[in-house]
Structures are given as structure tokens and as C-alpha cells.
Amino acid sequence: MAVVLLLEDDPGLQYVFSEALEDAGHDVHVASDNDQAMSALRRCTPDVLLLDLMIQGGLSTDVANYAVYSAPDADVIYMTGSGLFPKGELFGMSRNARLVLRKPVDIRELTTMVAHVTLGEPTLEVPVPT
């Protein structure tokens, strides 16, 4: 079981992702914006941060960078439907970034990737289906 901080501003996706992760046995803390996520990082020490990259007009990279200090062993999985950073630039911007999942995210893929990073596997980006 891993402690997961889920940052997702879409209430429907937040619900579906958190339920799937809880069903997989993880302890999930949810946040809807960067401020809530930063506050959650002060209350818990997650193993994994599952971050929607584009969050309410900004980026969640600030949360990932804060986690480097507040939860240094936590890995970051970004989720995005955006075309930003198509060449893996996120891995240079966030030193704790391990994966990028492209939206729409398959629930099985999500739970598998959370399990993958908690086992300490190397960094990889899930390819965009064509």
C-alpha cells in the first residue's frame, strides 16, 4: 500500500481516480488546487504524487518542487491532456518526476503505474497511443 496525494481539479476525475486507487489498497489524499496540495504535503508524507499538470490555469510543477523538500522520497506522476512539454521537458523541470500519463488515463494503467513507481522502478514515459 502506498500513500498517494492526488491533485486533480475535475471533480469527476478526482472521484474516479481516488476510488480506483483506494480499491487498489492505497491511502489517498485529494486536492483540487495547488494550495490544497501544498497543505496536504504538510499533513502527510506521500509515496507518490499524482498531479494533473494543468491545474486551474497554472501548472502543478510547484507542488512537485515543494515535495522535493517536504517528501523527498516521493515520486511524481504527471497526468496531462495538454501538448505542453512533448519531449520530456518535465523530467528536467521536476527532479522527482517519474512518469507522464496522457489523458484520457486508463484506470488500469493508472493503478499499474502507481504500483510501478512504489516498487522503485526507473523513470519512463508512457507512450501516447496513435
Rank of each mutant, 00 (worst) to 15 (best):
I77Y: 04
Y78M: 04
D106T: 11
P72L: 08
K103H: 04
D106S: 12
G92C: 10
K87V: 10
V68S: 08
S82L: 02
P86T: 07
L84W: 01
D73R: 12
V76G: 04
N65G: 11
A67M: 07
P104N: 05
A97M: 04
P72K: 02
M79H: 05
F91Q: 08
Y66E: 14
V105K: 00
L99P: 00
G88K: 10
K87M: 14
Y69S: 05
Y69R: 08
A74V: 07
R95S: 15
M79D: 01
L90Q: 08
A74N: 06
L99C: 06
F85D: 05
A71K: 09
K87W: 15
I77L: 03
G88R: 13
Y78N: 03
G92A: 15
G88F: 04
D106G: 12
G92E: 14
Y66G: 10
Y69C: 00
V76I: 09
S94L: 01
D106W: 04
A74G: 08
K87D: 15
V76N: 02
S82P: 12
D73M: 09
P86N: 09
V105I: 14
V100E: 02
L99I: 15
A67R: 04
N96I: 03
R102K: 06
P86K: 09
S70A: 12
L84T: 12
K87P: 01
A67P: 04
V68W: 07
G83W: 05
N96R: 04
A97C: 15
